[in-house]
């Protein structure tokens, strides 16, 4: 099959502290490429690999894109395809997307996650370390739980375990931020809060966690949720927006109980 690609090319990294859109965008622009040897069985990233081979043969700079596992678990590969983070298939990462999801002759726009908090490193690669810094502020359990216990020594009701697990499936890809009309990270941060608050081990530090994670999120310059739920629609792990309501409630609780 044939496709026409429009790909964001940017050789200079975006400045995270840029004051203007121009400084953030640097030399970035959309570039058009035609590919006519695409198989419907290729994954989206394999299609980009083919494009890059052509570019290298022509002596041009290949398109830089992030990837690692190529099996939908590491969260590295996200790009925005025709305006939708990770492309048209629901609950699917870019690496697990196949070219059969596009028609022959399709025009395909490929862009990096666009958010102030995710500066572009090069082309389609963004720096998601803002997520790491949020996680470092409390998305873990620091109370000492001693030597490993017998399995099931701490009973967790099935309903709670399910809720925690829904949130724990997050792979930190950043699609929620990319899809949000406000570049908000509340699905991601909500997943961290919700993951821990439904488990007994996590409940001990629930207040500091809610407060610290939200503060860290705000400092990174993400936008604010306006309950439009675009994040939920593109999340490759289909994490529900319930986790955002969980976070809102936890944050309010933490602030009210603050001394």
């Amino acid at each position: 099959m044939k496709v026409t690609l429009h790909i964001w090319r940017q050789s200079q990294p975006s400045d995270r502290h840029a004051q203007s859109a121009r400084d953030f965008q640097r030399d970035g622009r959309m570039v058009r490429y035609e590919l006519d040897d695409v198989s419907p069985d290729m994954s989206f990233l394999e299609m980009l690999d083919v494009l890059n081979e052509h570019l290298i043969k022509k002596g041009e700079e290949p398109v830089a894109f992030d990837h690692d596992c190529r099996e939908g678990i590491c969260g590295a590969c996200g790009v925005v395809i025709n305006g939708v983070a990770h492309g048209p298939e629901k609950g699917t990462t870019t690496c697990q997307l196949h070219m059969r999801s596009f028609r022959d002759g399709a025009e395909i726009y490929v862009e990096p996650w666009r958010a102030k908090a995710f500066p572009v490193v090069r082309d389609l690669i963004v720096d998601r370390s803002a997520f790491d810094r949020v996680v470092q502020n409390g998305a873990y359990v620091s109370v000492n739980t001693g030597a490993p216990q017998d399995a099931n020594a701490t009973p967790v009701p099935k309903a709670d375990a399910d809720k925690a697990f829904d949130a724990a499936t997050c792979i930190g890809c950043g699609a929620c931020v990319a899809a949000c009309k406000n570049a908000s990270a509340m699905l991601f941060v909500g997943a961290k809060v919700s993951h821990f608050v439904h488990l007994p081990q996590g409940r001990v530090e629930r207040e500091e966690r809610a407060r610290n994670l939200v503060t860290a999120m705000d400092e990174e310059g993400f936008g604010n949720c306006t309950n439009q739920y675009e994040c939920e629609a593109v999340c490759p792990k289909e994490i529900p927006v319930r986790v955002i309501a969980d976070m809102n409630r936890e944050f309010l609780r933490a602030k009210v109980r603050e001394e």
Partner: peptide, 9 residues
């Protein structure tokens, strides 16, 4: 401000 550069598509 959280999205300085808009999506082309």
């Amino acid at each position: 401000q959280a999205r300085p550069v808009p999506y082309a598509s």
